[in-house]
Design a protein around this nucleic acid. Structure first.
Lengths: 177, 177
DNA sequence: CAGTATCCTGTCCGATACTG
DNA sequence: CAGTATCGGACAGGATACTG
């Protein structure tokens, strides 16, 4: 019953991963959001920063507004002009963007990084990591945390996690390749 | 000169966000990775869990192996059979998956969640948040942290962050919609 | 400046059929 | 069981042209 219903039918999936991907799955969506986090609000700013075609930008902005991630509001009235600002919901995606960017950076030496996250006051680079809010422990790649069926899990989802064997995450013996 | 070169040319982008999206941008890629984190390693397991077509699964697995996120290795030899296990690089994507799933869950009441991340021993649900590893402070939607040009930033990237105005993240006055 | 409309291409993806 | 090969549809996205 989702309106857009992207190419694979994710509506009938209950995985929260799919839910998120459904909203930010299009490449440009993420990049536009990133622009928004950088303080940009206007059509031409997005267009210039991203090099996106105007037609695509129109489409993506509409989706973002429809999804409630951006709010479109007039900022002048003679010829009416709109700007696009993050909603609370949109802002809540920040950790996702940060995590995504952090992974990209993690594959580079510090001096190779072209975009970093910094403390707004000190200007010092921050190291984004994902932790458990209660314990502060890193979730990283440790085996200490696993996905599991939640309260609202369907039978299918429960079946998925029925396997739960002793070895949670099989890994390749050596590094990559 | 990237081999796959997905539809929009991301190779010429230096944004770490784009880099990540280039690797996990395809819907199935993320979901396959998620399966791998859940301990699944075999073709038919992926296929059954995800409901993906075999041809697509083949393609995606190949990409994942090529990208160094999964390793394909034989687990039996009479008829040779392969399994797909996470490499170190692949495992390093876990925080990204977790962050993505966490956002999906954040939009639901706890009792509505069908998939959660739990402590493997206690079984207690964990609350994934993104923090600065050095200070432990949450990166959330606060204005305390902003993206900035890194050491390797191109002129374009520097230009992008030259604006840095007093208000880092414009927000909608009220909540959403 | 801030878009909309139209055409076109690439490719993601499912469906189906086939193989050792 | 673990895939490969091929077909076709849907749609993201670029390019271009047009509007107030």
């Amino acid at each position: 019953m989702v309106t857009v219903a992207s190419r694979i039918r994710l509506e009938d999936r209950e995985c929260p991963l799919s839910t998120t991907v459904e909203h930010v799955g299009e490449w440009w969506t993420l990049l536009i959001l990133h622009d928004a986090f950088d303080g940009y609000t206007r059509f031409d700013q997005f267009q210039e920063n991203l090099g996106i075609s105007s037609s695509m930008l129109t489409t993506r902005l509409k989706t973002l507004v429809t999804d409630g991630l951006l709010e479109r509001r007039p900022y002048q009235t003679n010829p009416v002009r709109h700007e696009y600002v993050l909603t609370d919901l949109g802002r809540s995606l920040r950790p996702v963007i940060v995590a995504l960017a952090a992974w990209g950076n993690s594959r580079l030496e510090p001096h190779e990084r072209s975009m970093i996250l910094v403390d707004a006051e000190s200007g010092e680079e921050v190291q984004p990591v994902v932790v458990d809010a209660r314990t502060g422990r890193r979730l990283d790649d440790s085996h200490a945390y696993v996905f599991a069926a939640g309260p609202a899990a369907s039978d299918a989802m429960r079946g998925r996690y029925a396997h739960r064997r002793p070895v949670p995450v099989p890994v390749a013996p050596t590094a990559g390749t």
